[in-house]
Simulated scan of single mutants.
Amino acid sequence: MTKLNFHKQNFFKNTYCIFKAVDLQWIQDKTPDFTSRSGSQYFYTNDGVYRFSSHWGRAATCRWRLQTETSTFQNGAKVGFAKWTDFYKDNEVEKLYFVKKSEFTHKYEYFHKNEPSYKDEYVLRTAGDTRKVLRQLKTITTETKWAKYIPHDDLEDVRNYLINGLITSNKTLPELRRDYNS
Results as ranks from 00 to 15, higher is better:
residue 7 H to F: 11
residue 131 R to T: 08
residue 125 R to Y: 04
residue 6 F to K: 01
residue 11 F to M: 10
residue 113 K to G: 00
residue 107 K to E: 10
residue 146 W to L: 00
residue 94 E to H: 14
residue 52 F to P: 07
residue 54 S to K: 13
residue 147 A to T: 11
residue 8 K to S: 01
residue 126 T to Q: 07
residue 6 F to N: 06
residue 90 D to T: 14
residue 89 K to R: 10
residue 94 E to V: 10
residue 23 D to G: 11
residue 2 T to H: 13
residue 57 G to Y: 12
residue 80 G to R: 00
residue 166 L to G: 04
residue 8 K to H: 10
residue 103 E to K: 14
residue 139 T to S: 07
residue 29 D to G: 07
residue 33 D to K: 01
residue 27 I to G: 00
residue 40 S to E: 12
residue 129 D to M: 11
residue 44 Y to D: 05
residue 20 K to F: 13
residue 112 H to Q: 12
residue 80 G to C: 09
residue 164 N to Y: 13
residue 149 Y to T: 14
residue 157 D to R: 14
residue 111 F to G: 00
residue 28 Q to T: 06
residue 116 P to H: 06
residue 108 Y to A: 02
residue 157 D to Q: 13
residue 135 R to F: 06
residue 147 A to K: 09
residue 182 S to E: 11
residue 58 R to T: 12
residue 166 L to D: 03
residue 68 T to P: 04
residue 48 G to D: 05
residue 20 K to L: 07
residue 47 D to E: 15
residue 1 M to V: 11
residue 141 T to V: 03
residue 59 A to V: 15
residue 31 T to S: 04
residue 159 R to F: 01
residue 22 V to K: 07
residue 161 Y to L: 02
residue 77 A to N: 00
residue 23 D to P: 06
residue 98 F to T: 01
residue 7 H to K: 13
residue 93 V to K: 09
residue 44 Y to C: 03
residue 89 K to G: 10
residue 59 A to N: 15
residue 39 G to L: 12
residue 26 W to A: 04
residue 9 Q to D: 09
residue 105 T to C: 11
residue 82 A to V: 05
residue 98 F to L: 08
residue 34 F to R: 07
residue 78 K to E: 06
residue 121 E to L: 09
residue 16 Y to C: 06
residue 131 R to P: 08
residue 145 K to W: 01
residue 108 Y to V: 08
residue 180 Y to Q: 05
residue 139 T to I: 06
residue 148 K to E: 10
residue 138 K to H: 14
residue 94 E to P: 04
residue 89 K to E: 13
residue 86 D to A: 09
residue 155 L to F: 06
residue 78 K to V: 08
residue 156 E to M: 15
residue 6 F to P: 02
residue 92 E to K: 15
residue 17 C to E: 09
residue 174 P to Q: 03
residue 147 A to Y: 02
residue 122 Y to F: 14
residue 10 N to Y: 08
residue 48 G to T: 10
residue 164 N to A: 08
residue 5 N to I: 14
residue 55 H to V: 07
residue 33 D to F: 02
residue 123 V to L: 12
